[in-house]
Amino acid sequence: MSVTVFGSVNADLTFPVPQLPAPGHTVLGGAWRAVPGGKGANQAVAAARDGALVRFVGAVGRDPMAEIALSALRAAGADLSALAETDAPTGAACICVDGQGRNQIAVSSGANALARAAQVPPLAAGAILLMQMETPPAENVALIHRARAEGAHPILNLAPAAWLEPDALRALRLLIANEHEAAWLAARLGCSADAKGLHAALGVSIAVTLGERGAEAATAEAHWHIGAWPAHVADTTGAGDCWCGVLAAALSRGAPLEAAMHRAAAAASIAVSRPGAADAMPSAEETDGLMG
């Protein structure tokens, strides 16, 4: 089955720095790089490199930054036929990365704010629809309900954390959040911030990523925790996007959620060992090799 990703696409300006700047603090760093990024594009590239047939739907500007933003999607073979070109500037992010791989990110949405659910072609029954929160929330809500009506499987990565009405969340096949996003949502739902608590509140499958502590999930059938793969961390930018994209690719091939999570964790451990976001996503062969 295919994976359709509705989401953001950015040009990332990445600055290696000895330490992340504090308020009012100027830090001199190394040579900066302009690379493709954006949560939606990163996840689409990760899924495509893992072997999925991927269609990316989003919006860019008519400016030179669009070529940078789209370069990894094109190289990965993603279908861009539903991409919109707008008069707004292409989305961009400024990313500082310290010597321990930690990051600090500022994002200008630009054209991403003009991405619309109506751009998404009809979804095949059983297909995966993957979304994040760097496009307008109302467009995600429309797509979630449309996906269910068309028999597709809507998956939302609640990143960055923002509110969606509970009936949209309850229509998901799977909600993915990191531990900070899970805590944010749990505070608003009045439940515990772990996967079991969020599942009880929403009634849908939940996956919570825990960084170096792995990830946990809760479904109607079971609850489980998987560990993280050992990794030499160079840059954590896009690690969560790698996890989501590879998970979606595995699910599109019919893998059970637990097996898909193991594969996503292996791929993410490769991604964090490299600089950059979309450019750091591993191939299926690399992930297969690590998993043995």
Rank of each mutant, 00 (worst) to 15 (best):
A72F: 05
L129M: 11
A115P: 07
G91L: 12
S273A: 15
L257E: 07
E216I: 01
A234L: 15
L20I: 11
P230E: 10
V60Y: 00
P136A: 08
V3Q: 01
P282I: 14
A78W: 02
R213Y: 09
G214M: 08
T90H: 00
A115Y: 03
A268Y: 08
E258W: 07
S2K: 11
D79I: 03
H25C: 10
S2P: 13
H225M: 11
A218F: 10
G91F: 13
P16A: 02
D63S: 10
H232T: 15
A142I: 06
G211E: 11
M261G: 10
M133D: 06
K196E: 15
P64G: 12
T26P: 07
G245T: 07
A66H: 02
R116I: 00
P16I: 05
S273H: 11
P18T: 06
A187G: 14
I68Q: 13
R263F: 02
G151S: 05
E181F: 07
I68R: 13
T90C: 01
A52Y: 06
L129G: 03
N42W: 08
V204T: 15
Q100G: 15
V233A: 12
V9Q: 00
A44Q: 02
P230G: 10
V233N: 08
A75C: 04
G289M: 12
N140K: 00
E221H: 15
L185P: 01
A47R: 05
S2I: 03
A186L: 11
Q132F: 07
G126M: 06
A260F: 09
G58N: 06
V35N: 09
E216P: 01
D50T: 03
V27E: 14
M281P: 02
G292D: 15
A82R: 00
F56R: 00
G29R: 14
R33W: 09
I128C: 07
A84H: 00
I128L: 13
A201R: 05
P121D: 06
T209Y: 05
Q43D: 07
I95C: 04
L247G: 06
H153E: 12
Q132G: 12
L175M: 14
R263L: 11
Q132C: 09
I270S: 02
A117S: 14
V35S: 14
G276F: 12
R148L: 08
A147Q: 03
A259I: 12
E212M: 13
I270V: 15
D279N: 12
S8I: 06
A34W: 10
A48C: 06
E85I: 04
